[in-house]
């Protein structure tokens, strides 16, 4: 009996590993295809798509596509712009949205639930429907900078950052997480005479690692993949992000090898960010049931 049970366990384990391996392969293959294709000349790349060679470093391998990609477009500038805009937006978003969520979760004030409901309701509004009104708004907004008072935010970093700092999903994530924290912690801190700011900074946020990671990754992906908004508010190459930059490679004679090289380059920051945050992200998903 015991032998049969051990066999069953071994079989189950083997099946599990086979299934997990298959899933891993399915997820890794597109990345593998991208990286391998980036090393091949366009004609070979297209020929290889019909076979497993597409996933192997075979044939005429080299880094020409990378040098050509840098010649065709200011790749470094685009990556810098995207990382800057994304990084600043993520940091500001985590701070402001968590502050708002703290208020919704722990403070009592008139109209709190109604306002939270309205904020969450914004999740169903597609960005495309507000893009034009928002464009008209930011094109006339004032700004005081080094050159004094100016009107219009077009062709700046701030126009790519500020409208995206606060969003319903991030606030919602923080509110849900904060509500699950033991109330006793907050009450104990209040009894000890801590201010709300101290509770936010010293009690709540140190416990908010998983939700911070989740919100950061989700925001990072949204910001790094921005296309429509920078397309309509940025008309200068010096402020263009990576996704708009991708269009540089779609010419009449499309340079597929260079596209794959460009995609490989711009994927690096995303992978690096995810690898740094993955432990907290998985922990958050496991504990809250939130799916990205």
């Amino acid at each position: 009996m015991a032998t049969i049970s051990a066999d069953n366990h071994g079989l189950r384990l083997a099946v599990r590993y086979v299934v997990l391996t298959l899933i891993a392969v399915i997820f890794i293959f597109p990345l593998l295809f991208m990286v391998m294709s980036s090393l091949k000349p366009s004609d070979q790349l297209l020929r290889d798509t019909a076979s497993l060679r597409a996933f192997l470093p075979v044939g005429d391998i080299g880094f020409d596509n990378y040098t050509d990609a840098f010649s065709r477009a200011p790749v470094g500038l685009f990556v810098f712009n995207s990382v800057l805009v994304t990084g600043v937006t993520v940091l500001l978003s985590l701070f402001l949205c968590s502050l708002a969520a703290f208020s919704f979760a722990f403070l009592k004030w008139k109209g709190r639930d109604l306002l939270l409901g309205i904020i969450i309701a914004t999740l169903i509004v597609p960005f495309e429907t507000i893009a034009i009104p928002l464009l008209l708004l930011v094109s006339k907004l004032p700004w005081i900078g080094l050159e004094g008072l100016q009107f219009g935010w077009l062709n700046t970093y701030r126009v790519q950052i500020i409208p995206w700092i606060a969003d319903g999903l991030t606030v919602f994530l923080f509110v849900q997480y904060f509500k699950d924290l033991p109330r006793e912690l907050i009450e104990a801190a209040r009894v000890e005479g801590a201010s709300w700011w101290q509770i936010y900074r010293r009690v709540v946020m140190p416990l908010a690692g998983p939700v911070l990671a989740t919100a950061a990754i989700l925001k990072f992906l949204v910001m790094y993949n921005q296309y429509l908004w920078p397309l309509i508010v940025v008309q200068q190459e010096s402020y263009r992000p990576v996704m708009v930059g991708l269009q540089y490679f779609f010419q009449l004679d499309t340079a597929w090898g260079e596209i794959m090289a460009y995609l490989t380059i711009i994927t690096v920051p995303v992978l690096a960010f995810y690898l740094v945050m993955q432990r907290a992200f998985i922990s958050s998903i496991a504990s809250t049931g939130v799916k990205g």
Partner: peptide, 12 residues
């Protein structure tokens, strides 16, 4: 084309 149309809307 999308950039031009957006700029026309924004007066830019």
């Amino acid at each position: 084309n999308d950039s031009v149309v957006a700029a026309a809307l924004a007066g830019n």
